[in-house]
Design a protein around this nucleic acid. Structure first.
Lengths: 104, 104
DNA sequence: AAAACATATGAACACTTATTCATGTGTTCA
DNA sequence: TGAACACATGAATAAGTGTTCATATGTTTT
């Protein structure tokens, strides 16, 4: 029987904010696409078939929450998931959903 | 180096919807409060200092997504986290946030 | 320097959503 | 049966948010 650690008010706020950002399908797709490794904005745009401005806007939010990091390499900017904490979180959640076939 | 399972379009949608619901601080507090065991609506209202109608509205959304289950015992209705999948998810996330003190 | 390329930003709009107020439903007790 | 208790629901509103359009910034190439 696992138990959760007691969270401070601040912890809960941060946690909710993180969830909120993951709660948009477009942002989630962007994050999942960047999970295997750094992706340029252009790659994201082409692969996910989204407008460039939309991707930029979402990346800004994800950056603001330190969920992704962007690094410039000449003309392009490559984004990757910020740290192993975030990627572990995402992978765990992905497994949870994947295993859970108690569909509607 | 862990890898995420490949998710279907439907998986991503469900995952995003779940995150979206967890993304509201009030709902997240309610869920976390119900994590240790079944709580009556009244208990939630008192402990989290929220209005009764607000709690009911949020519980309805959480119920709709099968994140909580409600059981009536005479006058009161007790809510608990739906299954171990959800609670594991929450506990994992709680640990992730808790351990992550790379604050802003 | 200018043009071309890659990405970012700001304003505007449509749409969603959290909260409140008023009221409804179900259950127990007098 | 009626009153009291516990919870749910519907409408209304204020605030937030995703997307698009137009435009700006930064980098390379000619």
């Amino acid at each position: 029987m696992k138990r959760a650690p007691s969270l401070t008010q601040h912890d809960v706020t941060v946690l909710a904010e993180t969830f909120r950002l993951l709660g948009d399908p477009t942002r989630l797709r962007i994050l999942l696409f960047c999970l295997p490794g750094p992706r340029s904005v252009g790659e994201i745009v082409e692969n996910l078939e989204l407008s460039q401005t939309l991707v930029s806007h979402h990346l800004r939010l994800l950056r603001g929450a330190r969920l992704v990091r962007g690094e410039r390499r000449s003309k392009q900017v490559f984004y990757e998931v910020a740290d192993s904490h975030v990627s572990d979180m995402l992978i765990d959640m992905a497994f949870h959903i994947h295993e859970d076939h108690a569909d509607d």
